[in-house]
């Protein structure tokens, strides 16, 4: 049996989160309360107010959080469909609910939770996870606590990792969701092509999107995500590409590094 104070909070938390709470509260509110450890005085007081008043809190919490998620991924939510998105969100609240104290991070928690469910659901458009991830990027990158680091002032060296701006993300999509129109009513399907975007916050605070080729993405995966020294990263990227590290690939990598330095994303070699 939970402590008295804890029981009351547990009951309200369940009323807000549990998928079946509205039905159960309307069917037998007293049983719902007792199941969470509430006893006579508290049960009587809550029964006097009625279960609908408890459910006002459920509506307030769900409306606020669902609207925040929808605001961040509005095109994904629209393509999912109003009732389906609402059901997804109800299930999120039931199974996990937010754990972040920052409201702006709730949409990312929802997308992380819903990704395997959308992926496994044949009724969900196959590009929707990519679109939701893409829609989150703008606020995610703009607000990333990392980013804006100073250049190391060290020239590139083959035996050292490179330092990139902390805000940059390498996004790899199976669908070219970045080409979809912004209109919420649009229902077109994006091209089904592997798409690589390097996304970062520039020195003015704007979020920039750089579409890059497969070879560049392989290189950056090794250098940004795995933080490998340049030579090792290039070798691994070539292996994964099923090709040798020839002059053409080296030249492309050099051009990529120069372009990223121009954009202020590549900040030099990491100090030893």
């Amino acid at each position: 049996m939970a402590a008295k104070g804890e029981a009351r909070l547990a009951a309200m938390s369940a009323a807000i989160r549990a998928a079946d709470a509205p039905q159960r509260i309307r069917a037998d509110y007293a049983a719902f309360l007792r199941e969470h450890g509430l006893v006579d005085g508290d049960v009587d007081a809550l029964l006097e107010r009625g279960g609908e008043r408890m459910l006002v809190y459920r509506s307030l919490v769900h409306n606020r959080l669902r609207n925040v998620v929808r605001e961040f991924i509005d095109r994904s939510a629209a393509r999912r469909g109003k009732s389906e998105f609402r059901a997804d969100f109800d299930a999120f609240m039931d199974e996990q609910a937010p754990v972040t104290p920052y409201l702006r991070d709730v949409p990312a928690e929802f997308v992380a939770w819903v990704t395997p469910r959308w992926t496994a659901n044949e009724a969900v458009p196959p590009y929707l996870v990519d679109l939701a991830r893409h829609e989150l990027l703008e606020t995610d990158v703009r607000n990333d606590p990392a980013g804006g680091e100073e250049p190391t002032e060290l020239p590139l060296a083959l035996d050292r990792p490179l330092r990139f701006d902390g805000s940059c993300r390498l996004m790899r999509y199976a669908w070219a969701v970045h080409k979809l129109p912004y209109a919420l009513e649009d229902t077109s399907t994006p091209p089904h092509v592997l798409t690589n975007l390097l996304v970062f916050r520039d020195r003015t605070g704007k979020v920039r999107y750089l579409e890059i080729g497969e070879w560049s993405a392989l290189v950056l995966e090794e250098l940004i995500c795995r933080k490998l020294p340049v030579a090792e990263g290039l070798r691994r990227a070539a292996d994964r590409d099923g090709a040798s590290l020839d002059d053409e690939r080296l030249a492309k990598a050099a051009n990529l590094f120069a372009e990223l330095a121009d954009h202020g994303v590549l900040l030099g070699a990491e100090p030893g």
Binding site: G5, R17, D42, Y57, L60, V61, R64, P98, V99, P101
Partner: peptide
């Protein structure tokens, strides 16, 4: 409650 954060001002007894 119990690790979940509901982002609202919920009442206390």
């Amino acid at each position: 409650f119990d690790g979940a954060l509901l982002h609202d001002l919920l009442p206390i007894p």
